[in-house]
Amino acid sequence: DRIFMTRTEALEFLLKAHQTAVDKIGHPSHKQTPADHAAIEALDRLLLDVRARRVDQFQINASAAQIIVTD
């Protein structure tokens, strides 16, 4: 599946995904793992790359739809 978004929409989408990941590892019942921190770092890099126009398409994980940034 493909989803087309403007750059602004894609950045909002990534910010929400980032916040969800941060909230998940901050929850008291969740045991933090290196994979959790790696996922947040990957989202940080992706946010910067989309914002800087170095990336025009991405996929958060293998089961997610491919996001295509349109400007």
Rank of each mutant, 00 (worst) to 15 (best):
S63R: 11
D23V: 08
A10P: 00
L43Q: 02
F13V: 05
E9H: 04
G26R: 15
V50S: 00
I25E: 04
A21D: 01
R7Y: 11
R7G: 01
I25P: 03
A64W: 09
E9V: 04
I40T: 03
I25H: 06
A42Q: 11
A65H: 08
Q19W: 05
D23Q: 11
D1H: 04
I25A: 08
Q19Y: 04
N61K: 06
Q59R: 13
F58Q: 00
A62M: 09
H37V: 14
T33R: 06
H18Y: 15
A10E: 00
K24W: 07
I68G: 01
L48N: 15
N61R: 08
T70R: 13
T70G: 04
L46E: 00
D36F: 07
A17I: 10
A35E: 14
A64M: 13
Q59W: 12
S63T: 11
R54H: 06
I40M: 08
V22W: 06
D71Y: 05
E9R: 05
F58T: 00
I68R: 03
E12K: 11
L15W: 14
R45P: 00
Q57Y: 11
A42Y: 15
L46Y: 02
A42T: 12
I67L: 02
T33W: 07
A39Y: 15
M5F: 03
R51S: 13
I3D: 01
K31Q: 12
R54Y: 05
Q19T: 06
I3G: 01
L11P: 00
Q59E: 04
V22I: 11
D23M: 05
E41Y: 05
R53F: 08
L11K: 01
R2K: 13
L14V: 03
I40Q: 03
T6N: 06
V55E: 02
H37I: 14
H27C: 06
A17K: 04
E9K: 07
A35N: 10
I3M: 10
A39P: 03
P28V: 08
E9Y: 02
S29H: 10
T8N: 12
I67V: 10
F4D: 01
A17V: 11
D49L: 15
G26L: 14
V22Q: 08
R54I: 10
E41D: 10
E12W: 11
L47H: 03
H37Y: 14
H30G: 08
D23R: 12
E9N: 04
Q66D: 04
A64Y: 12
Q59L: 06
T20C: 06
R54M: 06
L14F: 01
I25T: 06
T20V: 12
T20N: 13
K31S: 14
A38W: 11
A21M: 15
N61Y: 12
I3E: 02
H30R: 06
G26V: 10
A38Q: 11
K31H: 13
F13G: 01
T70C: 10
T6Y: 02
A42G: 05
I67F: 05
A52N: 13
T20E: 15
T70P: 02
I60Q: 02
E9L: 05
A62D: 13
K24H: 08
D23S: 12
A35K: 08
A38F: 11
S29C: 06
Q66F: 15
M5V: 02
Q66N: 07
Q66W: 15
A10D: 00
T70H: 09
V55Q: 04
A39L: 15
D23I: 09
D71V: 09
A10R: 00
P28H: 08
I25Y: 07
I68F: 12
R54W: 04
A65W: 08
S63W: 11
V50E: 00
E41C: 08
E9F: 03
D49G: 12
I40F: 04
Q59N: 05
V50T: 01
V50F: 04
I67A: 01
A52C: 11
Q19C: 05
A42M: 15
V50M: 03
T6W: 02
D1I: 03
D56I: 14
H30Q: 06
D49F: 04
P28Y: 02
R54C: 04
R7N: 03
D44A: 15
P28E: 10
A39M: 15
I25V: 10
E9S: 04
A52D: 12
A21K: 04
D56M: 14
H37R: 14
D49T: 02
A17S: 05
Q19V: 06
P34G: 07
I40Y: 03
I60F: 05
Q19R: 12
T33K: 06
D36G: 04
E9M: 08
R45A: 08
D71C: 05
D56V: 13
A65G: 06
N61I: 07
V55M: 04
E12S: 15
R53G: 15
G26P: 04
V55I: 13
Q32R: 10
S29Y: 05
F13T: 03
Q66E: 11
L48W: 05
P34S: 09
D71T: 07
A35V: 07
D44Y: 15
A38K: 09
D56L: 12
A21I: 14
I40D: 01
A65T: 12
F4V: 07
A39C: 06
L11D: 01
